[in-house]
Structures are given as C-alpha cells and as structure tokens.
Design a protein around this nucleic acid. Structure first.
Lengths: 227, 227
DNA sequence: TGGTAAGTATGAGAAATCTCACACTTGGAG
DNA sequence: CTCCAAGTGTGAGATTTCTCATACTTACCA
C-alpha cells in the first residue's frame, strides 16, 4: 500500500467519482490517495484497517479467514465502492482480508481521526445506507439467478471477473468452493475451455485468455436482464 | 393490515425487541402496532408503503414485480427485521411486494410524518447501516454455501421456511425459479418426499408436513457452520 | 361459451455434476 | 533432508438435474 502524492490526480479522481457528494463537508484535504499493486492486500487479515476506502480503480476480492486457518472466497469488488465500512460502523466486527486483483487506486480516510465525524454525518450515513441497500438487493437477485446457469457460463463470467492482463490465476480449490461445484468438475470444465481454445495453459497454475469473445458470449446471459 | 389498539402489547413488543434503542429519542408514542394475516400484503406492489416497518412476529416473503407482469420470489424475512427501509432511504427506488406467510405483527412508523426526522437521526441511520451490512454479509456467505447443497436439502429448508401451521403451499413455478432448478426436477423431488412419507399431499396444491424431524435433518447441514 | 394462458403432472433420454480412487507435485515444518 | 499437508490432475461410474414432449386442469377474458 503506497501513498500517492499527486494532488492533481487525487483531485481528478475525487471529482469524477463525486467523492465529495458523499459527505456534508469537503473532505478533499483529509483524503489520501493510495495505491495497492495487483496481489497486494488492501485490508489484511486480523488487522483492523486504518482507513475507510473508496475504490476508484482496479478490482479486488474479499476473503474470510476461518477459525481453522482456511480462507474462503466471499465476494468481488469493482469501482466505485466502499471498503472497510463494516469496520467503521462496528469496531467489534470480525476482520477479513481484501486483496487487489489488479492494481487498485483508493481514496482513503483515516478512521481513527474521522470516525466520529463520519458517524455523525447524516449525508454520509445515508449514502452508506443506500450503497448497502442496493448492493444487498443486487446480490440477492443475482444469487437466485446464478443458480440457474451452468458452470460453463458462471466460470466464464468468473474468469473475466478475476482475470488480470489476460491472465487467470486463481486457486482451483477456492474457486470450486466459491462457485459451489466440486473440484473435479471445475477441472473438467476448465479442461474443456482449453480444448476449445478459449484458454491456453501456461505451466501449472496460469491460464491465458485466448478467446475473450467466446468467454464473454458464454457469460453474457448472466449479466443481462432478459425482461 | 389492521391496527392493533393494545398499548400494553405494543409496549411489551417495543421493550422485548429493544425498538427504542434504534432511535435517539423515544418513538413509542409515534409507533403503531399493526397486524397482517397470513397471505395478506405488508407492502403492495407499486404502492409506496406508508410506514417503515419493524417485523417482530411472523414470517414474510419479498416479491419482485417484473415489467412483463410476472412476479419473482426474492427473499424471506423473519423477526426482528426492518421492512420498507429502502423506500424510506430512496423515494425513487422501485417498489416491491411483501407478503405475510404467517400472521405478522409489525411496529410501524408513518414515513411521511417522520422521514425527515429519521434521516437526520444518526443513531437510527447507524442501526440501519449495521443491519444492512450484516444482512449483506450473511446473504453473500449463505448464497455461496447454498450452491453446494442438493435440491433435497435446499427444498427441505425451503419448506420449513415457508410452512405455515404444518402446511406447505407455494406455487411450484415460483419456487423452482427461486431455488434455481427446473420445474420438472422440483416436482420430482417433491414426489420423492411424498414417497418417503415426509409430506402428504392434500388435493392439488397443498402439502402437509408429515415428518418434520426428517425435513429438519435434511436441512440441518445448511444452517450449521461446520467449522 | 369458447379460447387461451398459467399452473400442475408425468415419462424418458440427455447432460451436468458428484463421489471416490488414485497419483503426482510443491512448499514448508521439524 | 524428510515428511506431511495442500494443491493439482485424471478416470470411471453414480447421482442429480435438465430438456423436451405431452396432457390435463383452472381461471379468466372476449
């Protein structure tokens, strides 16, 4: 996690993402611009984050650290979205891990300095409420819909979601769990993708996207609202 | 939807559900106690609800009314939980339907009178935020887990969730959609439940629970956290 | 009063997915 | 250096679920 000291870029990102509309007062001066490289941690396991984040560029994934030491994929985040709002709202909530998939740019507000101010800012609280309410509504609808798609389609969407520079590189065991299918079947479908030339395997872990159009076609039905 | 003029009961429900803790001022006098019979509508399609509800007894289900006239099952609610908070937060949000599965008791605050007050009450807003954040976290985890269960298990859980006085009586078409399986397969599994004596069919639409223990055993793995 | 749409119902074959069994690789921990 | 856990990889048969075809019933509308 690196601080970017480029006020022009910071101000530009604040403007294009209407960041100041989220608060009752201008928070520009108090906001830092942070960058996290692909693979880096935005929020580390068991460590309470020091900031409230607003993701403005990049992709990230959320893990849950189970008590038995295993980590489970929970969710994915794309801009614009809050991160760490749970920690801000409930200091007793269990911590989790947020890892960058691509290089991420984040607008960040130091929690310990501004927590009281934020929790007393009705404009901010209303925005968080709306954000959470819409996220919830979207997720519930998506979850129910997703069940009706075949692994072919969901995996295609998943690869496009987690891909970075044309490279897919997630742990099969975790993905199988996240997508709710057996490890065996995930490998099987992945193999058919290679067979059909959608992916090319490089070594043991890395897959290169070879036919993005086809993957998009497979996953397209998932996103679209048919009626 | 009937107003219950029983101040003693109202006060008791307010106390046991810590309703007043949700606000910065005592809302008891402004709160109404409403009841909706099983099958009745708490929020009707296309009609903006007049209240912010807090469900304290009963069960309810949420529908989405599609533009093509179809209705789709979205989610289920059990006490204690808010209802209509989306409408309170965003007057432009699309309306939906909330229908009682069992007789429901609701603490209700008239929106048009208290909207401004509620949206300026940071205690209330923080509670809504926490409620939404935890609901979201729970739903995302559950959704991912659910995929790995067989329809046997999910249907057993679903029947117990939507059952009313030992009677299961949901539309197969909607349930199939909600559970993400084909109509054919739902009917097939339902038939095996009857075969095995878990359910008894009464007429064309109604199923009676005949072996609740077995259904609970089937669904038990869904709720429990194994680790 | 007839027609049409939606819901219910069932059969049979096909496809998707799972379970189990086994083998190999890799990265730490001791 | 060795062992062990976790991850990867593959085969084969079993189970779950889907698709399609086909009927019958019910409610409602013209």
């Amino acid at each position: 996690m690196k601080k970017i000291l480029n006020d022009h870029l910071k101000q530009q990102l604040i403007n294009t993402n209407h960041f100041n509309d989220l608060f009752s007062t201008d928070m520009s001066a108090k906001t830092q611009l942070l960058s996290v490289p692909a693979g880096g941690y935005i929020i580390e396991n068991t460590k309470r984050p020091a900031y409230l984040f607003y993701l403005v560029r990049g992709k990230a994934k959320l893990y849950d650290a189970q008590s038995n030491g295993k980590t489970v994929l929970i969710d994915f985040f794309t801009p614009p979205c809050f991160m760490g709002e749970m920690e801000l709202l409930d200091p007793d909530s269990d911590p989790f891990s947020m890892q960058a998939i691509e290089d991420c740019l984040l607008l960040a507000l130091p929690i310990n300095q501004y927590q009281n101010q934020l929790l007393s800012d009705t404009i901010f609280l209303r925005h968080i409420c709306l954000y959470l309410a819409y996220k919830e509504a979207r997720d519930v609808r998506t979850a129910s819909k997703n069940q009706s798609f075949t692994l072919n389609q969901r995996l295609a969407a998943f690869i496009l979601l987690t891909e970075h520079n044309g490279t897919y590189n997630e742990k099969h065991t975790q993905v199988a769990q996240y997508l709710g299918v057996s490890y065996r079947h995930l490998l099987y479908v992945l193999a058919t993708f290679v067979d059909q030339g959608y992916l090319v395997k490089h070594g043991r872990h890395v897959y290169q996207i070879a036919n993005r159009e086809k993957l998009m076609a497979l996953s397209s039905e998932i996103r679209n609202e048919p009626e």
